[in-house]
Design a binder for these strands. Structure first.
Lengths: 116, 116
DNA sequence: CTGCATCCCCCTTGATACTG
DNA sequence: CAGTATCAAGGGGGATGCAG
């Protein structure tokens, strides 16, 4: 890759990931597979139904996740990553890796002057 | 990497990149090296001084870019990527790559039915 | 040239209550 | 259980004007 900003496809990726809870949802579904609505909700303390629904919808609209509804008396809806959504994994990993180093660096700035 | 969401370092990476113009600034500085304030501004039609300044400040606070002020009569300020900031390149690249595919896929959904 | 301050708008997020 | 509707609040982002 020589030039990475021709038309800013970076924006597309960013757009998909931006949202207070979106990446969390993605990470959970990526790691733990299919989940029900309330399972996801329970995993993210602080999120409201409204937000969960909204972020889920947006992810679904992008084709990143799949929504499967079971016609049952106690409603049951399952969410899972699509193949397309799985293609985001490298991006998430790159960000995770960077974030981890970032945190380390911040921590180290305390200790490195005092070493020995 | 087994689990990528232990403490959501992804959030840190996202936090650094999120902002309507931040990734653009990063891409420009990454590709073209040191730039002056107005050069950056000219590169991004639509951005206002306020936003440029703000995004630049935030990037600077994170240690991603460096701000060098020349004590001259016509003020001159140069911005450049720090070594630390350069560590974001893989992340940007991953996003760029994904975004490019994403765009392609959208385009193809028009043509693939009509092939032949 | 570069940057700050102010005012304003709108979108995102959040709290709560209600429905199938 | 899953989702929608409504109302309120906060902050990001934009336009403009002033200053060193």
């Amino acid at each position: 890759m020589d030039r990475i900003s021709e038309n800013c496809p970076v924006d597309d990726a960013l757009g998909v990931l931006v949202g207070k809870w979106k990446h969390m949802i993605l990470l959970y579904l990526l790691q733990e597979g299919t989940k029900r609505f309330n399972e996801l909700k329970r995993m993210m303390p602080g999120i409201t139904q409204k937000m969960l629904t909204k972020q889920l919808r947006e992810l679904e609209d992008e084709g990143i996740i799949e929504r499967k509804v079971y016609a049952q008396v106690p409603p049951k809806v399952e969410y899972s990553i699509t193949e397309y959504g799985r293609s985001l994994e490298p991006v998430l990993e790159a960000m995770h890796e960077w974030g981890a180093k970032h945190t380390m660096q911040k921590d180290m700035q305390q200790g490195e002057n005092k070493s020995s």
